[in-house]
């Protein structure tokens, strides 16, 4: 008797239809990933200001953004640092960050914290603060925040699926 036991990690399609507050609730429940080093393929979703879009339209928009018309392809992590990857994977690196585990200032739970406040980055990028948690094996749910003068603003969510 044979069972089909090895399946690739699926990306929950429901995430693309979710509102930002719904992903906030999910994100709060997720654990920190055991391993993040490597190259990851990204998919954007739940962009701030677009929650008014009907869910099917938002779903379609984020599926389109997952096509090569969006030059951002994902991220890479190695040895406490990381970079955004462009045009292909692993592709060109632009927009770097440090990586460490710390309690999220949003929900107080541990997350992988991506800090763009580095001299190598252009000034507009230095306000970005990313967070990543594990949605499954080889699948991360991430939140991009913007550090304002006093407040951390949630900007969007994205998933990272391990590449290769």
């Amino acid at each position: 008797m044979t069972t089909h036991l090895s399946l690739p990690p699926a990306r929950p399609a429901e995430l693309l239809r979710s509102r930002q507050h719904e992903l906030d609730a999910l994100f709060e429940l997720l654990p920190v990933p055991a391993h993040a080093d490597g190259v990851w393929r990204g998919t954007l979703m739940a962009i701030r200001g677009l929650d008014w879009l009907p869910r099917p339209v938002a779903n379609l928009l984020y599926r389109v953004l997952a096509l090569p018309i969006d030059p951002w392809r994902g991220k890479s992590f190695a040895d406490g640092r990381g970079a955004n990857r462009w045009f292909t994977l692993p592709g060109a690196a632009f927009g770097v960050y440090t990586v460490r585990v710390k309690d999220s200032p949003v929900d107080g739970k541990p997350s992988v914290w991506l800090d763009y406040n580095l001299q190598e980055n252009l000034a507009p990028l230095r306000g970005i603060r990313g967070e990543a948690r594990a949605l499954g094996d080889d699948l991360l749910l991430c939140r991009m925040n913007w550090q304002g003068s006093n407040t951390l603003h949630r900007v969007l969510y994205f998933t990272l699926a391990r590449h290769g």
Partner: peptide, 10 residues
């Protein structure tokens, strides 16, 4: 489906 997402181990 949850196992396929890596949530339940083997």
């Amino acid at each position: 489906e949850s196992r396929a997402r890596g949530a339940l181990g083997a």
